[in-house]
């Protein structure tokens, strides 16, 4: 059984003290332990941004890819070997700005991977600019007079895109986040978890206090996560009352279910030497 010690890496952590990423990192490690997953059977994919360093801090297989492209990368890995547990970490700019196009398609395909978005509503590693989830009016170096458009609503988007697992966590509540992550990873299909993660250096607005005053758990209100319409309604709650937890969950056939010839078989195990093409060639005579 894997332990916290096993999951440690020699890399020194370079996130700012108090960064919301720490909660996500610890929750992920604990979720792996809780699920009893072996390190060598898990692949962590990350993009570019502060979140991307996850690859350096968890001792599992990892691919630190390029900005915005974690989902297609994870898609390729999972399709080639469905036996792997593939967890994709992305930032809000990474997933909702640069990689927004992939987001919709990954949801639609329902491949059995997990997407965890470190959503701090600001670009951190590039020293503070607006992102797709920055609040309207949010002032940054790139928007000194305030962000003009309203923020995207990734939860609502995932719900209307037919997502089979749509949830939101808060890194300030590591215990609940661990449970949510474990549930997301266990989900058979594409699991999407948006995680509020305060950026203590560049986000002056969405702070720990800001979240603490607003965040409430869906389960405490007895939310029915099998009802998509209700979930959509909940996804529009913002301002003073912001829900976290599982918005919606259902079992549905995955992309691989649509490929009966490889269904859950690793492509790596399909013989690739001496593939017979004689009949194909003969059909071309």
């Amino acid at each position: 059984m894997v332990t916290l010690e096993d999951l440690k890496t020699p890399k020194k952590n370079t996130w700012c003290p108090g960064c919301g990423n720490f909660g996500i990192l610890m929750a992920f490690k604990k979720a792996l332990i809780q699920l009893g997953l072996e390190r060598d059977q898990v692949v962590l994919v990350s993009g570019i941004g502060c979140h991307g360093k996850m690859v350096n801090y968890v001792n599992v297989n990892g691919f630190h890819g390029i900005h915005g492209r974690t989902l297609p990368l994870a898609t390729g890995i999972k399709l080639a070997n469905p036996n792997l547990t593939v967890v994709c970490f992305a930032g809000d700019a990474d997933c909702y700005d640069e990689g927004w196009g992939h987001f919709s398609h990954a949801i639609r395909r329902n491949i059995d991977i997990t997407l965890i978005v470190h959503n701090n509503m600001v670009l951190g590693l590039t020293t503070g600019q607006t992102t797709a989830t920055s609040q309207k009016g949010f002032r940054t170096k790139s928007t000194p007079f305030g962000s003009i458009p309203p923020a995207l609503n990734p939860i609502a988007h995932a719900l209307v895109s037919n997502g089979t697992f749509v949830g939101r966590g808060y890194s300030g509540d590591m215990m609940s986040l661990t449970g949510l992550m474990a549930e997301a990873i266990k989900h058979r299909g594409f699991a999407f978890l948006d995680v509020f993660q305060p950026c203590v250096t560049f986000n002056y607005l969405n702070t720990y206090d800001w979240f603490k005053e607003r965040v409430y758990k869906l389960e405490e209100e007895g939310h029915d996560y099998t009802d998509r319409q209700k979930a959509i309604k909940k996804s529009f709650q913002w301002k003073d009352h912001i829900p976290v937890g599982v918005f919606y969950k259902e079992e549905r056939s995955t992309y691989l279910d649509g490929l009966p010839h490889v269904k859950n078989q690793a492509l790596t195990k399909i013989p690739m030497e001496k593939v017979a093409i004689t009949s194909l060639l003969e059909s071309m005579i």
């Binding site: 994919v45 492209r69 297609p72 990368l73 994870a74 898609t75 390729g76 890995i77 080639a80």
Partner: peptide, 28 residues
């Protein structure tokens, strides 16, 4: 032939998927 042939949402997705599959051990 026991292959997966898929239409990606863009060429950006296509090359990243290809890289992912290769990383996982198949010719892509």
């Amino acid at each position: 032939y026991g292959m997966i042939v898929m239409q990606a949402e863009s060429e950006i997705a296509a090359i990243n998927m290809t890289a992912g599959a290769s990383f996982a051990g198949v010719r892509a």
